[in-house]
Amino acid sequence: MIGDRRRLDWTLLVLFAGVPGAALALDEPYLLDLFARVLIFAIAAVSLDLILGYGGLVSFGHAAFLGIGGYAVGMLYQHDLGSGFLQFPVAVLVSGVAALAIGWVSLRTGGLYFIMITLAFAQMLYYLGISLKVYGGDDGMRARRSEFFAPIDLNDQTQFYYLALAVLALSLWLGRRLVNSRFGLALQGARSNERRLRVLGVPVFRYRLTAFVIAGALCGLAGALFANLNEYASPSTMHWTRSGELIVMVILGGVGTLTGPVLGALAFVLLESYLSEALEALASGFGQHWQVVFGPLLVAVALFARGGLVGLLRPGRGE
C-alpha cells in the first residue's frame, strides 16, 4: 500500500519532469509557467497535508506562510540582497518562527477555535502586508529572481522549473519519512484519539506544534519559489481565499496521503485556467464567472468525494 503510493509519487514526478520537453515540442512556453505554478502549490499543499491530513487540524491560515516566504524574498531584494543562498534560508526560518508563534497560541485550543484562530492570524498578516507602505502596501513589491552561483540561473525558465520540481520531490520524500516515523505515528495517534494518547504518555501539544512549524517552514519555501515565479511579492498571496484554495487542493487530491495534494494542486490549477476557457466557449462572457460552477463543485466534492483523486485512482483501497 505504501509501496503503491511511492510508485504513484514517482510516476507523477517523472511526468512533471517531462513537461519542459513537451512545452518545447508543442511550442507552448506558457505551459512551463503553468506547471511551475502547479509544482509550487503542490509543495504548499503537501506541507498543509502534514497538519491537516496527518495531524487532523483544520488550519485555515496556511497561505500566511506562503506570503511570509514571498515577503522574505521581496524585502531582501528591496534591500539589495538578491542571493538565493540568503533568501531561501531566511524564508524558511522566518515562516518557521511565525508558525511557532501562531501555533503556540492556536494549538492550545482545538476544533472550531483552531479553524477560526488560524484564519484570523492569516488575516492579520494580510492586513500587516497592506499597511507596510515601505514595502509596496496594497500592491506589494517587485522581486527579481534569486541569484545562485554561476551555472544556476533561475531566470532560465527551465532551470527554475527543475528547481521547483526538486523541492517538491524532496518534500514528498521527507514527508513520507516523517509520517512513517515514530513522530508521525504519534501525530496520527493524536488525530485519532487525543485523550488516550496523552494518557499513554505523549505530550500532544509539543508534537502538534512541531508538525505545525515544519509545515509552516516548508510552505515558506514554497512562498519563496512563488515570489520568484511571479517576480513579485504581494499581500494578495496571503488573502484568506488562498488558504481556502490550499485546503481545496488537499481535499480534492486526498487528505492524509501526501500524493493526493500534488494531484489536487494539479487539478486545481488546471481547472482554474481551463474551466473558464471551457465556459467561455459555451457562452461568451461566461468564462470569467467560472466560480459559479466551481463553488457548487466544491460542495459536491465535500459531500461525495471522501478519498479524493487518489481514491479514484485506486478504488476500493481502504485505509
Partner: peptide
C-alpha cells in the same frame, strides 16, 4: 499492532524521532 506500538514508543520516553520508519 500500531495501537500497542504507540503505547510502547510513548513509554520509551519521547517519540521525537523523525527519520526511521516506526514500523
Amino acid at each position: 499492532l500500531d495501537n500497542v506500538r504507540l503505547a510502547v514508543q510513548a513509554r520509551a520516553g519521547h517519540s521525537f524521532r523523525f527519520w526511521r520508519a516506526a514500523r
